[in-house]
């Protein structure tokens, strides 16, 4: 892979170039080898399963032997009246999650980084990442209890400070589903996701702070001019990865938060596939929708990667 691109020197024959290449790079290849082998065995070998999206499943003849159906199962999804609604709902949830949820841990990391009181800093830092360990099932039970009409403490608090209209049933309002889903998601993962930024901030060269001090910059300016650029590459990489995950709106939480009233906003691709397969597993249909999902995700990843490389010089590949 890429061997031929190596070394711009001319006048050497291929064998010799190879030799030089290996002399220089064999250690790097060796360091990559375990990972490459693992990925090959556990990810590439099973990949023949992808063709199931184009075939009928047949147990006797295996994945590779079922009847070739071409794009039948893709068409089944595209032509379904639920295609547009599920795609739309998925996009809305995912985009809102990124717009609101992506900056949150960055800001949190910056704030934590600025806390001067060491004890308080430790307390905050340790507390914010605990929600990550709460299972989705419990999270949703808590949402249902804390936001219940009339009896929910948090719901009532939000109504008392007029953030939410008095007669709105937060759990049952279609328009409240996305904010509720996204904000509880931010609550749960903000602290956990901030860890990587906090770590990145810790690697900022401290001499830069001193230099900035001497220039008379205040803390805000220091943060903006030194901290932020220092973690920008990390931010960009994570943004790319997030964009590449855009259609993977987690099944569990949406499914558990679904109720008849919010179905108009909460029926997403993964819950729809589940509904289709609930009585008899529709392997090929699921595989086709999954592949469609993946393809869209991949396009988003490549696109964001390209834009990021152009704008900031940071990219995955």
């Amino acid at each position: 892979m890429g061997k031929n691109r190596e070394t711009g020197e001319t006048g050497l024959n291929a064998g010799e170039r190879m030799k030089r290449y290996w002399a220089h790079n064999w250690q790097l290849w060796l360091m990559l080898l375990p990972g490459i082998i693992y990925i090959f065995v556990f990810c590439y070998v099973p990949m023949y399963g992808v063709q199931l999206a184009f075939r009928d499943y047949s147990f006797t003849s295996g994945i590779t032997g079922g009847k070739w159906e071409g794009f039948k199962y893709f068409r089944q999804y595209f032509e379904s009246p639920m295609f547009i609604p599920t795609l739309r709902n998925t996009f809305i949830i995912a985009l809102t999650s990124i717009v609101v949820g992506f900056p949150a841990p960055i800001i949190l990391a910056m704030i934590i980084n600025q806390i001067r009181n060491t004890k308080w800093k430790k307390i905050v830092q340790t507390t914010v990442y605990i929600p990550y360990f709460i299972s989705v099932v419990v999270l949703v039970s808590m949402i249902n209890i804390l936001f219940a009409n009339d009896s929910g403490v948090v719901g009532n608090f939000l109504k008392a400070i007029h953030l939410v209209g008095q007669d709105i049933n937060i759990l049952g309002k279609e328009s409240a589903f996305v904010p509720l889903y996204v904000l509880t998601g931010v609550w749960q993962s903000m602290g956990w996701n901030s860890i990587i930024f906090i770590a990145a901030l810790s690697s900022v060269d401290t001499q830069l702070y001193d230099a900035c001090k001497i220039d008379g910059a205040n803390r805000w300016q220091t943060m903006w001019n030194i901290d932020f650029p220092a973690i920008l590459p990390t931010i960009m990489i994570l943004l790319i990865l997030n964009m590449g995950n855009i259609l993977n709106v987690g099944f569990d939480k949406v499914f558990l938060m679904q109720n008849s009233l919010n179905l108009g906003a909460s029926q997403v691709i993964s819950t729809y596939v589940y509904t289709v397969g609930i009585k008899s597993s529709q392997f090929s249909f699921g595989a086709a929708v999954g592949l469609f999902n993946t393809a869209i995700n991949f396009v988003f990843l490549l696109l964001t990667n390209y834009l990021s490389k152009k704008a900031t010089g940071t990219g995955l590949m």
Partner: peptide, 15 residues
């Protein structure tokens, strides 16, 4: 080579 596998997988059964 690595990133590709974040997206495309053969599915649970082949694995």
């Amino acid at each position: 080579y690595f990133v590709f596998t974040m997206f495309f997988s053969g599915g649970l059964v082949p694995t």
